[in-house]
Design a protein around this nucleic acid. Structure first.
Length: 574
DNA sequence: TTAATAATGATTTAGCCC
DNA sequence: GGGCTAAATCATTATTAA
C-alpha cells in the first residue's frame, strides 16, 4: 500500500512462521533470546533433560513429535522428569529438596522469592526461564551477579555453543511456565495445526475443549497471589488519587521507562509470572469504565512515576446514553445498563439481534420477566444498543473508535474491511486510560521521546502520546499485521508527524544487534511500550486459551527480552 | 479470493445462603 | 467453608455469501 518509506526498506524482513528453516529457528533468531516454540524447548518444558531430547530428536528427526515423545517416555529415566505442577497425573512430591533438577522447586520458593538477594532471584528467574540450575549458577559465577538476565542468558548460550558445535545448540529455550500450564496440551495444539483436517473440531473423537486439560491450582501460587483490587482503579483516577508514591525494586528503575499491558482477567497465576519476570513490579489494575463508557479491565506493569498525572481533554462521556445519544429514545426502562461491557474483536450476528426483535414482538409492549432477562443477558454479552423500536444492534466500528479514544475513522480506509476493523480495535488500548498513565512523561521530556513500541497494533500508544502533545522523535514500531501497520502509518501521515516512524514486522527478529544499531542511529529509547497478545489468556477464547505459553501470548517473553536488551545497552552507556 | 456470518463453552470471581 | 447462581470475558473456526 504505501511502500513509500526509505526507512522501511532498510528493515524488510522475510516472514513467516510456518516455513522457517532450521537455520532461522536456531540460528538467526537465537542469539538474543527466546524466539519461538521449538521441538527442543517444547520437550524441555515438559521436563525432559536436554540431552535426552537432543538424542531423541537426532534419532527420529523433527517430523514426528509423538514419536519423539514415545522415545523419551521409553527411555530409562523418563519416569521422574516430566512431572510438572498442574499435570493431571502429577502428584506433588513431598520433601524432596535435594533434587535440584526438579521443577517443583521454583514453585516452592515463590512465596519468599521477593525476599531473596538479587543473585538468588536471578538464579531462580533463569531456572524459571528454562535453564538448568547448574547452567544458571555457572553463568552467574562467570558474569557476576550484577549482570542482567540477558547477559546471563547469553553467557549460558556461549557455554553451550562452546561445549557442542552442533547448530541445534544455538537455541534459546522458551521459558518454562508456572503451575497448571500443562504441556501435554501443546502437543495437541501443534498436531492440530499441522496435521489435522479442519473438520476435526466437529468430530466427537477428539474435540478440543477445555476438558482436555484440567488446571490444578497450586497452593504455592496462592501464597503469592496477586489480588485484583476492587474497585479496579489502579493507583488512582483523575481527581481521586489513591497512591502517589511507590517503591520500585532497584532493577526496575529506568532508563528506559517501560509500560506493559495485558488483560486483567487471565487464567490463574499469569500475572504472578508476568510480574515476577518484569522486575517484581506489582501490576496496576484499571478498568477503563472510569475513563469512557465501556469497561476494559486491564493490568499495566510500568516503572513510570505516578505523581502528577493528568487526563486527556476533552473528557469522554462515561455513560452509554451520553456517548450514544441517539440510543436514548429507544432505550427501555427495564434495560438498566449505563455502561457497555468490554469491546471485543467480533460482534453479534444478525440472527442474535433478530431473535431479540422477534421475542419482543411476540410479547407485546410489556415483556414478561423471563423475556427481559433473556434480552438483557444477550445485550450484555454482545454489547448491543437500542437503535429503534424493538431493535438492538452491535456497535459500529466508528463507535468502537470513539469509545476507545481514537479519532473517528482511524481504522477506516486503506482497504481495511469492517471485520478487520473490529478485530484491530478489539485488540487495542483504551487511549484515555493509557494517556493518563503516560502523561507524567510530558514534563520530563519537553523535547520529545524515542519510543520502542512493541505489538503496536493500530497505534494506541502513539495516539495517546500525540494527544498528550508529547513529541515523538522516533518511534520504532513492531507489528505483525500489515493492516495495522498501514493504519499506524496513515495516522502518522494524517497528523503530520515530524518524527521518524520505523515499522518492523516481527518482534522475534529484533535482536541485540538490531536494537543497538537502532539506538546508535536514533538515540536511546526513552519508553518501551506494548501489550503482548492476550488471545491465549482471554476467557473469550474457547479454543486455545492455553495461558502464557500459548502460541501468541508467549510473545510476552519477547517483550521482556527486548526490554532487557534495551536496559542492558543503556546501562552500559551510562 | 475475500468478507461476512453463524456456531462454538470454559474459567474465574463475586455474592449469596446455609 | 461448601454449594449454588450470576456475570464477565482484547476469540476461533467453518461455512456461506459476495
Amino acid at each position: 500500500m504505501d511502500g513509500d518509506s526509505d526507512i522501511d526498506s532498510d528493515f524488510h524482513w522475510t516472514d513467516d512462521d510456518e516455513n522457517k528453516s532450521p537455520t532461522n529457528l536456531y540460528g538467526e533468531a537465537s542469539e538474543a533470546g527466546p524466539s519461538r516454540p521449538s521441538l527442543y524447548s517444547h520437550f524441555i518444558a515438559m521436563g525432559f533433560s536436554g540431552d535426552m531430547v537432543e538424542k531423541a530428536i537426532k534419532e527420529n528427526g523433527e517430523g514426528d513429535p509423538e514419536a519423539i515423545l514415545q522415545i523419551l517416555l521409553n527411555s530409562s529415566d523418563a519416569g521422574k522428569s516430566p512431572l510438572r505442577p498442574g499435570d493431571a497425573t502429577a502428584e506433588r512430591p513431598v520433601a524432596d529438596d535435594e533434587d535440584s533438577s526438579d521443577d517443583w522447586h521454583i514453585d516452592d520458593k515463590e512465596d519468599f522469592i521477593d525476599d531473596l538477594p538479587p543473585k538468588d532471584r536471578k538464579l531462580l528467574l533463569l531456572v524459571d526461564m528454562g535453564y538448568s540450575p547448574e547452567d544458571a549458577a555457572a553463568a552467574i559465577d562467570r558474569c557476576g551477579h550484577e549482570s542482567t538476565i540477558l547477559e546471563l542468558a547469553d553467557s549460558i548460550h556461549a557455554a553451550q555453543i562452546a561445549e557442542k558445535s552442533d547448530e541445534m545448540e544455538h537455541y534459546y529455550p522458551k521459558p518454562r511456565f508456572e503451575a497448571g500450564e500443562g504441556s501435554s496440551r501443546r502437543l495437541t495444539t501443534e498436531k492440530k495445526k499441522t496435521n489435522e483436517p479442519k473438520q476435526k473440531l466437529k468430530k466427537s473423537s477428539t474435540p478440543r475443549t477445555r476438558k482436555d486439560h484440567v488446571r490444578k491450582p497450586s497452593p504455592d501460587l496462592d501464597d503469592a497471589k496477586i489480588i485484583i483490587p476492587k474497585p479496579m482503579v489502579g493507583f488512582g483516577l483523575p481527581n481521586q488519587t489513591c497512591i502517589t508514591q511507590r517503591t520500585l525494586p532497584d532493577e526496575a528503575i529506568g532508563p528506559p521507562y517501560f509500560y506493559y499491558e495485558n488483560i486483567a482477567l487471565t487464567p490463574k497465576g499469569v500475572w504472578e509470572t508476568i510480574s515476577r519476570i518484569l522486575y517484581n513490579i506489582k501490576p496496576e489494575f484499571v478498568d477503563s469504565k472510569y475513563f469512557c463508557a465501556a469497561a476494559r479491565k486491564r493490568a499495566y506493569i510500568h516503572n513510570l512515576p505516578i505523581e502528577g498525572r493528568h487526563q486527556l481533554l476533552p473528557i469522554p462521556p462515561k455513560t452509554i446514553q451520553e456517548a450514544l445519544p441517539m440510543t436514548k429514545q429507544w432505550w427501555p426502562k427495564w434495560d438498566q445498563r449505563t455502561q457497555l461491557n468490554c469491546l471485543h474483536t467480533s460482534i453479534a450476528t444478525i440472527k442474535i439481534t433478530e431473535n431479540i426483535t422477534r421475542a419482543l414482538r411476540d410479547s407485546g409492549e410489556n415483556p414478561k420477566a423471563s423475556v427481559r432477562d433473556y434480552i438483557i443477558r444477550e445485550c450484555r454479552k454482545w454489547n448491543l444498543v437500542w437503535i429503534g423500536h424493538h431493535r438492538v444492534a452491535p456497535l459500529e466500528p466508528s463507535e468502537f473508535e470513539m469509545l476507545l479514544g481514537f479519532p473517528i475513522n482511524h481504522t477506516r480506509g486503506g482497504g481495511t474491511s469492517r471485520t478487520e476493523r473490529y478485530k484491530s480495535l478489539g485488540n487495542s488500548f483504551q487511549v484515555d486510560t493509557v494517556a493518563y498513565h503516560l502523561s507524567v512523561l510530558k514534563k520530563m521530556f519537553p523535547d520529545g521521546i524515542n519510543v520502542l513500541s512493541l505489538f503496536s497494533g493500530i497505534g494506541g500508544a502513539e495516539v495517546a502520546l500525540h494527544n498528550l502533545r508529547i513529541f515523538m522523535k522516533t518511534v520504532v514500531s513492531v507489528e505483525k499485521s500489515e493492516i495495522n501497520r498501514n493504519i499506524l502509518r496513515n495516522f502518522w501521515r494524517q497528523t503530520r508527524q515530524k518524527g521518524n516512524l520505523i515499522d518492523l514486522e516481527d518482534v522475534r527478529q529484533l535482536d541485540g544487534d538490531m536494537i543497538e544499531s537502532l539506538m546508535k542511529q536514533y538515540g536511546p529509547f526513552d519508553l518501551v511500550i506494548g501489550g503482548s497478545p492476550c488471545n491465549n489468556l482471554t476467557g473469550s477464547n474457547r479454543y486455545t486459551r492455553d495461558g502464557l505459553e500459548g502460541e501468541h501470548s508467549s510473545l510476552f517473553y519477547d517483550y521482556f527480552r527486548v526490554l532487557d536488551i534495551v536496559k542492558s545497552l543503556m546501562a552500559k552507556k551510562r
